[in-house]
Computed example of a mutant assay.
Amino acid sequence: MSRTVPLRQIATARAGDKGDTSNIAVWVRDPADYPAVRRGLTAERVKAAYPALFRGQVTRYDLPALHGLNFVIEKGLEGGVNASLNADAHGKSFSFLLLALDIELD
């Protein structure tokens, strides 16, 4: 029987930024949940979930030995901290956006 949960219930995340590129690492708490997160949290899904924010290419790197996924998001910071008029142009808060997505568990 499968169930759907917000990613934040089964994982943590940490984000950073450099220029106009954001980096988000997602770490699954229970290794048994890693395959479901890997299956459900694709680069395409991340980009599609926030098209107004993530305007460039989204690349996912799998870290199976650490039960993690790392996303590199290009053109996601309105030009970067120094170039944006956005009050929070840093990518730090993007980890919370990913943690809000639902994941289907087996």
Rank of each mutant, 00 (worst) to 15 (best):
G91T: 05
S95N: 05
I10P: 06
V81F: 09
F71S: 10
A13S: 12
A89F: 05
Q57K: 14
H90R: 11
A87N: 01
D88M: 08
H90D: 05
P35K: 07
A65R: 12
F71I: 09
F94V: 04
K92Y: 08
E44S: 15
A52G: 15
R39G: 03
G79Y: 04
N86T: 13
G40S: 04
A36Q: 13
L41Q: 07
R39C: 11
L7S: 11
G40R: 03
T59G: 05
Y50T: 10
P51E: 03
A83P: 00
A48T: 11
Q57A: 12
L53W: 04
T12I: 08
A43W: 04
P64A: 11
A49L: 10
N86L: 06
A52H: 14
P35Y: 11
R29N: 04
Y50D: 11
K92D: 14
F71N: 10
N82L: 07
T59L: 14
A13H: 04
G56L: 06
A87F: 06
I24H: 04
V26P: 07
P31I: 01
R29D: 12
A25V: 15
Y34Q: 14
V46S: 11
E74V: 01
L69K: 02
Y50I: 06
R14W: 03
F96Q: 14
L69S: 04
L63S: 12
S84K: 01
H90M: 07
V46E: 13
F54R: 01
A49I: 09
V37M: 13
A83V: 05
L77G: 04
L66T: 08
K18I: 07
N86F: 06
H67N: 15
D30R: 13
S93E: 07
L53K: 05
I73Y: 03
E78K: 04
G76M: 02
Q9P: 00
D20R: 03
S22R: 00
A87W: 02
V58S: 13
T12M: 01
L99H: 12
L97I: 03
W27L: 15
V28C: 05
A100Q: 14
A52L: 09
V37I: 12
A11E: 01
N82H: 13
R38Q: 13
L66Q: 14
F71Y: 11
A43F: 02
L99F: 07
A65P: 00
H67V: 01
K18E: 14
L98G: 04
T59K: 09
A87S: 05
L53E: 11
R55H: 01
H90S: 13
Y34I: 09
E44I: 10
G80S: 07
G56M: 03
G40V: 02
G80F: 04
L66D: 15
I10R: 08
Y34E: 10
K18M: 14
Y61L: 09
I24W: 01
V46Y: 11
V58Q: 15
R29H: 14
E78L: 07
A11K: 00
A32P: 00
K75L: 05
Y61W: 06
L97K: 08
L41M: 15
S93Y: 14
R29S: 14
L97N: 04
P51D: 09
D30N: 15
L85E: 10
